[in-house]
Design a binder for these strands. Structure first.
Lengths: 116, 116
DNA sequence: CCTGAATATCGTGATAATCATATATAACTA
DNA sequence: TAGTTATATATGATTATCACGATATTCAGG
């Protein structure tokens, strides 16, 4: 007897992970976890075009992962839940343990841990 | 000066989260975290067609998240890293805190926590 | 070797995500 | 009010993902 129940909740969880499933959005979150940032600052740190950054922020906003705060004409973004840092850190751990298959991935991992 | 460096590593991290960004794959991982399972057993628990289950398992396999073990003609799958449970649990926490917006989502969350 | 059971892969059409360009809004400032 | 800066949204082209059905593969028994 199959549990034909697709599970609405898993749909929401999947949506959450989907929000993290993009290189630029991960970079954005890593930056915002250090400190809240304006769109401009993100733009500069990421070397990405303004609409792209706003687009990705819109996605993170839509999923309630990130929160905008207007200060005059600029908007500073902040991560809503510090636990997101924990999440990324656990992800990094799993990554180091089992996911690092290719040589180039290992090289990049080494470079990153040297940086932090 | 922008760090035009897109960061190869974030690409890999994104790939990892992309692997989790699917309702069925999340269900599969939750089941496998309880105990390793054959494709058939997953099929039954999920109420999904066989090719679908194999497909999603292939994706998880490709990302080294899950590991196949042949026993004769059947294949049992296991999660490679127990820390994945930790990851899902942190994700659930974030979820409960800030992401649960809609009524139906809250109802589902309540149902799930009652179940465990 | 042939068959049947368990699993994997392929091909296809539909849907969604992404990037880039252009345009729009909103708030300051002169 | 006009101009300027910061941010957001609309839109179209391209590519990726998905579900589904059909076909392959693998292995055990006879």
């Amino acid at each position: 007897m199959a549990e034909s129940h697709p599970g609405q909740l898993q749909v929401f969880k999947a949506e959450f992970f989907k929000a993290l499933a993009h290189p630029l959005r991960i970079r954005i979150l890593e930056l915002l976890l250090e400190d809240e940032q304006s769109v401009q600052e993100l733009q500069r740190s990421l070397g990405a075009e303004q609409p792209i950054v706003s687009q990705q922020l819109a996605i993170l906003r839509a999923k309630n992962i990130v929160e905008p705060r207007k200060h005059g004409t600029t908007v500073r973004y902040a991560v809503r839940d510090r636990a997101l840092g924990e999440l990324l850190s656990v992800a990094r751990k799993i990554f180091n343990n089992h996911l690092a298959g290719t040589q180039t991935m290992l090289r990049e991992l080494a470079r990153e841990s040297r940086r932090r």
